[in-house]
């Protein structure tokens, strides 16, 4: 099977002030796969994500060296418009944060920014995205109620649906299930498995079992370095590095 590269970084180095949090990371993420990023906190996996969606722009005192590109084009280039980039790279955060509006308005937020104003089109997008996020059945009769009234698990699936409404090519999920119960987690995982045929997905998680369950490739980060990167099968059955093995077996983390 020949894998096409979607996202690639080349000796990517990120520092906040004097602290270097990503140390010369070179990685290729393949199209239409789920790639799991794992590692203890402070390993730099979330920082890597924030480079890919350029949310790192909102941090102070950042220095970035090396390069990162999508489809062979640099995303750190000055000519890249981060707003355009974020339409292609959707993000779901660890804590579900619905905007204080209705369920429908939450999903319509991104499309409206693109200039889509037609109600029927927006409703079709909402239905489509909510179905993909496995939330449609639960909310189809109350799209105009406040998103804040949903349960935590529902809110996180709403955030996923909201990201899908941007029609991105890449979806970044930063520990999306850290605050959720097992049933909600399972629903998110089911949704992700279905979505990978259309999107390139990066899943950051501390939960190694979750990575093993649903990702095709796994990367292990430790103190800002990429220690090991391979198919999930190989990483979990015959890890090349002893640190990876220790982490997977729960000896630290």
């Amino acid at each position: 099977m020949v894998m096409e590269t979607k996202i690639a970084t080349d000796k990517l180095r990120v520092s906040f002030g004097k602290v270097t949090v990503l140390k010369d990371v070179t990685i290729k993420v393949h199209r239409n796969t789920i790639t799991g990023f794992m590692g203890p906190s402070g390993s730099g996996k979330s920082t890597l994500i924030s480079v890919i969606n350029r949310m790192i722009d909102f941090e102070n005192n950042v220095r970035i060296e090396g390069d990162a590109d999508i489809d062979g084009k640099s995303i750190l280039d000055g000519s890249i418009n981060p707003i355009e980039l974020r339409r292609r790279v959707g993000t779901v955060f660890a804590v579900p944060i619905p905007l204080p509006r209705s369920i429908f308005e939450n999903i319509a937020y991104g499309p409206k920014l693109k200039g889509i104003t037609d109600r029927t089109t927006l409703h079709r997008i909402a239905e489509d995205c909510l179905k993909k996020a496995f939330l449609w059945e639960e909310v189809k009769d109350r799209l105009s109620t406040s998103a804040l009234k949903l349960s935590g698990g529902q809110q996180q699936r709403l955030c996923l649906a909201r990201t899908l409404a941007l029609k991105p090519e890449i979806i970044l999920l930063d520990e999306p299930c850290s605050g959720l119960d097992p049933i909600s987690t399972a629903k998110i995982e089911d949704a992700l498995s279905e979505l990978k045929s259309e999107y390139t997905i990066i899943l950051v998680s501390n939960n190694t079992k979750q990575i093993a369950r649903i990702s095709d490739f796994s990367a292990f980060f430790y103190l800002g370095e990429l220690i090991e990167y391979n198919t999930t099968d190989k990483v979990f059955t015959t890890p090349a590095e002893s640190k990876t093995e220790d982490y997977i077996q729960g000896k630290f983390g």
């Binding site: 707003i83 974020r86 993000t91 944060i97 920014l113 693109k114």
Partner: peptide, 16 residues
């Protein structure tokens, strides 16, 4: 601050 971050992540500009 999180509300702002979410809005930016959904491709909104600063003024939006």
């Amino acid at each position: 601050r999180q509300l702002r971050i979410v809005s930016y992540s959904l491709s909104a500009s600063k003024w939006e």
